[in-house]
Nucleic acid binder design. Sequence first.
DNA 1: ATGATCGTACTGC
DNA 2: GCAGTACGATCAT
Length: 121
Amino acid sequence: MKKQEIQKLLQKNSRISSFRRKVYLALLHVPAGYVTTYAELGKVIGCSSAQAVGQALKHNPYAPDIPCHRVIKSNLSIGGFHGAKAGMYIKQKKELLAKEGVFFNEDGILIDSERVFKLKL
DNA sequence: ATGATCGTACTGC
DNA sequence: GCAGTACGATCAT
């Protein structure tokens, strides 16, 4: 699905809180082949709590159209996916990112830290 | 260098 | 309100 379509859907769907919309929109600004962190994402949308960002992504209304797999932790650990911190979901997350050129080591840590997208404030 | 704890903002109940 | 969370930073071992 195209980015524009998702943005439209987000605007139309009033069941989504403004905060969550901000999170999803910001996430859509991250191009394939890059990732961002919960904290940085939160900063951009004016929130100091990465947990809140995680919550928003967990309730991702348009998964997998919204690429929640491009969000990792500040310590470059892979974080979670679909409510799981480990297991096959995480494996899938790694595979998805690997396809986009973002690789993680055995410990689930991002290998190339240059792949962290620098969001503008 | 790990593990526990508190602080944080938001969601669900 | 209250409690839980896909986190982060700090304090205590």
